[in-house]
Design a protein around this nucleic acid. Sequence first.
DNA 1: TATTGTTATACTCTATAACTATA
DNA 2: TATAGTTATAGAGTATAACAATA
Lengths: 157, 157
Amino acid sequence: MPTKPASLNIDDELSAQVDQSELLGLLGYNVRRAYLVIQTHFDAQMEKLDLRQADFAVLSMLRSNPGINQKALAEALAIAPPNLATLLDRLESSGLLGRQRSTDDKRIQLVSLTPQGVKLHTQALKAAQKADEAALHQLSAGEREQLKRLLSKIFAG
Amino acid sequence: MPTKPASLNIDDELSAQVDQSELLGLLGYNVRRAYLVIQTHFDAQMEKLDLRQADFAVLSMLRSNPGINQKALAEALAIAPPNLATLLDRLESSGLLGRQRSTDDKRIQLVSLTPQGVKLHTQALKAAQKADEAALHQLSAGEREQLKRLLSKIFAG
DNA sequence: TATTGTTATACTCTATAACTATA
DNA sequence: TATAGTTATAGAGTATAACAATA
């Protein structure tokens, strides 16, 4: 190694000698970086329950909307129908939900949680709230509400 | 089709008869949905320039930090070194950047934009700003600053 | 003909292990 | 031994086309 002491090495502890101001000036990049942090906390929490992000979203929707059909579920969660189909296959195999053909229109599958699914959702919601807390501990309650309001203007906009 | 008129079909135009309140109560989910919207605008802009998200981030960093090494670049952008290596291969093949072995330490690659890379970055920055604008048109200048501040508290934590 | 859901498939993104060359 | 970078590869997430069943 050259004669430079480690403590003066530009790329190490003191690091961040790099100029990221252009990227940080773009809101899209800030959203991306924040999303990566939140994802990490969320995944860490859900790993214990063997659930992925989309799995939790589905469990949550089914809890609040029992008997929802797959088209409505796919639209609400912005999941492509083929990907939802295989996701539901997996959760159904795990005994978390059931699918029932509508008698009105036999093309339609009505999806509901099993009691086991309800139980897991209850645990998963607590885990999701913990992940939120871990990622957002720097923000006050007011800041969290403000952030939620601003974000929802982007996607509900 | 049953006798229901289309205009009363729960899953159609009026739709959103679904309860998403639990998910929307989680900040992580709000960040995710906002990120998806921003991604869409960003990708649409970058498609014209044949650039992906990470490509733009690299061009931006190289513009502000010419001669940065790959380790520092990978760390700053949170890209795994193997993925950065192949990304740089591609941009180098396209004539956008060059890699030069450091004479001090021959393990290190120093990366810089070519004049063509500088030119493309200039266009790409404008495109990124357009994408920001398109995604954030609902927010006032003050709200955008506020949002940036709150997001950076999450990832700069 | 149009719609719901499925199957098969492909493409991108991300992550990991093993290697090289240098130190 | 440790580090910078590379290669190869595998996995997850996402997207599209073609199909079956039903309307």
